[in-house]
Design a protein around this nucleic acid. Structure first.
Length: 257
DNA sequence: CTAAGAGGCCTCCCTGGCAT
DNA sequence: ATGCCAGGGAGGCCTCTTAG
């Protein structure tokens, strides 16, 4: 924590940093000094699924200016929350990744997602939407009590992007890229996945529509069709998508009565 | 005494252009 | 691919004034 403290102390002392401080001896205020500025937590959200290149961050944060992204990355780097990594040959490009300190923000972001879900409309409408945000959403709608006892590895192919979701010992780990040895491969669009998780499509309807499920041979001991239904039902049941919104609606109705 | 409004200053953010 | 810079708009903060 010495690094983080130094950043704030330096900022407060010389006044030259762009970072504003609440100057309160409070852990929450200190956290907001570090990550409370506009775009910062969304930048961390992007990196929760793995390292990303500058251009990809720019693409997945529509509306952020190039200079602002550079500044936020620099601030997070100085605070020890983000670090630069250079990929090996042949890519050799620079990527940005969360440090161990940065990964400590995950529970806070998941909690914010649960909170924000209460005000999230059922469909994106005219708002921007990215497949990786749906995958991040899996983290804060995950219900450990509904997870299968045996570990499962899922590969999600959403639009043009591939993600790996691993459920093991009641925890969910999601990352960008293919699963090394998936039990189930789900190939669909991000919006179709939202429909399925939100309960607007049943598993059978989804399988007749735009959702494709592939099961590598090793677990296809039952009839393929049944195995697909079973696998997709098991996946969907792990997430409480839509539950938080209904709780909010209930409270609004109760409050207005 | 307190709350609300006005005005000036400052910071933040975005856009577009440009350099490395 | 990365990120710096200038210009301008929007909004926040601070101070002062005024009304109740």
């Amino acid at each position: 924590m010495a690094t983080l403290d130094k950043v704030i102390v330096d900022a407060m002392r010389d006044g030259q940093s762009s970072r504003r401080s609440y100057s309160q001896y409070c852990a929450i205020a200190r956290a907001l000094d570090l990550v409370g500025e506009r775009w910062t937590l969304l930048l961390v959200r992007e990196l929760l699924l793995g390292p990303m290149r500058y251009a990809d961050l720019l693409d997945d944060l529509p509306g952020i200016g190039t200079n602002l992204l550079a500044r936020r990355l620099q601030d997070l780097e100085e605070a020890g929350i983000v670090e630069r990594q250079v990929l090996p040959r042949p890519a050799r490009s620079t990527v940005y990744a969360l440090t161990r300190q940065g990964q400590l923000l995950e529970p806070a972001i998941v909690a914010l997602g649960r909170f924000g879900g209460r005000w999230l409309p059922e469909h994106p409408g005219s708002e921007q939407f990215r497949p990786r945000w749906a995958v991040t959403g899996l983290k804060h709608t995950f219900r450990p009590d509904q997870a299968p006892k045996k570990a499962r590895s899922y590969q999600l192919e959403l639009d043009d992007e591939t993600f790996h979701v691993c459920v093991k010992h009641g925890t969910l780990i999601a990352s960008q890229g293919p699963a090394p040895d998936p039990d189930v491969i789900i190939d669909t669009t991000a919006l179709a996945l939202l429909d399925l998780l939100g309960g607007h499509r049943t598993v059978r309807q989804a399988l007749r529509g735009t959702v494709q499920v592939r099961i590598p041979d090793k677990v296809a001991s039952t009839a393929p069709r049944d195995a697909k239904i079973q696998a997709l039902e098991e996946f969907v049941s792990m997430f409480g998508w839509g539950r938080s919104r209904s709780r909010h609606r209930d409270s609004v109705v109760a409050g207005s009565a």
